[in-house]
C-alpha cells in the first residue's frame, strides 16, 4: 500500500515536471521549427511543427549577416567580465548588507530599490553623458561597467537573502573555535553560499548576454555590437521581419547560453552543506 502511494506520488511528479518542460520549452521548439521553414511556409496558415520542406538556407542567411559571430564574441566577453565583477564585488558587500543594521544597510537597501524602480529611460541620458566624459561610450569596457553596475542591485539583494538564510549560530560556532572573521567567512559562510552565488552568477551572465537597451544606446561602431543588437537588425522597417533568418540566428544565439547553463547547473547542488555544518 505504502509503496503504491509512493509510486503514485513519483508518477504525479513526473507528469507535473513534463507539463513544466512543455510550457517552458515549447517556444524554443517553435523557434527551431521556424528556423527551418521557408518564408512561404511561415506565411501560410498551415500549422505544423515539422516543415514541409527543410529550408536550411535560413542558417546560411543568418551567418552571412554582418558580424553575427563577432558580436557573439563581444557578448561573451561583456557577459563573462561583468559576471566576474558582479560576484567579486557583491559577495563581500552582501555579507555586510545582511549582517549589519543601521545607516549603511538603510542606504544600501534604499539604493537597491530605487535604482531598480526608477525608469531606465530617465537614467540613460545622464549616464550617457557621464560615460562620454570618461571616454567609455562605444566601448566594451564601458558596457561591462554599466552591466556590472545595473546587475549589482539584484546580486546584492539576492545574496544578502542567502546570507540571511545562514543561521548565525554556525558563524558563532566558527568564531568560538578561534577563527577570525575572514577565516569564518572563507571556511563557513562562502561554502554555504555557493548555490546562491551560482544562481546569482547565472542571472548576471544572462542579463548581460541578453541586455538590449544599454548596448543599443551606448555602442556606436558595428565591430562593438553585441548579439542582441545584431539580431535586432534582422527586423526591418514597416514591420518587415526576415523571420526565418531571425529564428535561425536566435537558435544559434541560444546555444552558448544553453552550454553555459549545462555547466553551471551542476554547481547548483549544495554538496558542501553537510560538511560545513559538521566541520
Amino acid at each position: 500500500m505504502r509503496v503504491l502511494a509512493q509510486q503514485l506520488v513519483r508518477l504525479a511528479q513526473y507528469v507535473a515536471l513534463a507539463c513544466y518542460i512543455v510550457f517552458l520549452g515549447f517556444p524554443l521548439l517553435w523557434l527551431i521549427s521556424a528556423s527551418v521553414k521557408s518564408s512561404a511556409e511561415l506565411n501560410s496558415l498551415v500549422v505544423s511543427l515539422l516543415p514541409q520542406e527543410w529550408h536550411w538556407e535560413n542558417y546560411a542567411d543568418a551567418l552571412a549577416r554582418q558580424g553575427l559571430v563577432s558580436s557573439a564574441g563581444n557578448s561573451a566577453i561583456v557577459a563573462l567580465a561583468s559576471t566576474a565583477l558582479v560576484i567579486l564585488v557583491a559577495l563581500p558587500a552582501s555579507y555586510v548588507l545582511a549582517r549589519l543594521k543601521g545607516a549603511i544597510r538603510a542606504a544600501g537597501v534604499g539604493w537597491i530599490l530605487v535604482s531598480q524602480v526608477f525608469p531606465v529611460v530617465l537614467v540613460i541620458l545622464p549616464l550617457f553623458l557621464v560615460l562620454r566624459t570618461i571616454g567609455l561610450t562605444d566601448s566594451l569596457v564601458g558596457l561591462t561597467l554599466v552591466h556590472t553596475t545595473y546587475t549589482l542591485p539584484f546580486a546584492l539583494w539576492m545574496l544578502q537573502g542567502y546570507v540571511a538564510a545562514i543561521p548565525v549560530d554556525l558563524e558563532e560556532a566558527g568564531a568560538m573555535d578561534g577563527g577570525n572573521r575572514l577565516v569564518v567567512l572563507r571556511r563557513i559562510v562562502f561554502p554555504l553560499l555557493a548555490p546562491g552565488v551560482v544562481a546569482t552568477a547565472m542571472f548576471s551572465f544572462v542579463s548581460s548576454w541578453n541586455e538590449f537597451f544599454f548596448a543599443l544606446v551606448l555602442l556606436q561602431s558595428p565591430e562593438n555590437y553585441t548579439l542582441p543588437i545584431t539580431l535586432s537588425t534582422f527586423i526591418g522597417g514597416e514591420g518587415k521581419v526576415a523571420l526565418g533568418p531571425l529564428a535561425a540566428g536566435s537558435v544559434l544565439a541560444a546555444i552558448p547560453s544553453i552550454v553555459f547553463f549545462s555547466i553551471m547547473q551542476k554547481k547548483l547542488t549544495g554538496g558542501l552543506m553537510a560538511g560545513a555544518v559538521k566541520g
Binding site: I21, L28, N210, P228, F234, V241, L246, S250, S262, Q265
Partner: peptide
Amino acid sequence: GLTRVLALIPWAMPPVVVAIM
C-alpha cells in the same frame, strides 16, 4: 541535469524573438 537546463530555456531565447514567437 537535463530538466534543470530545459527549465532555463526562457533565459536562452534572445529577447528580440520572445515576443515574436
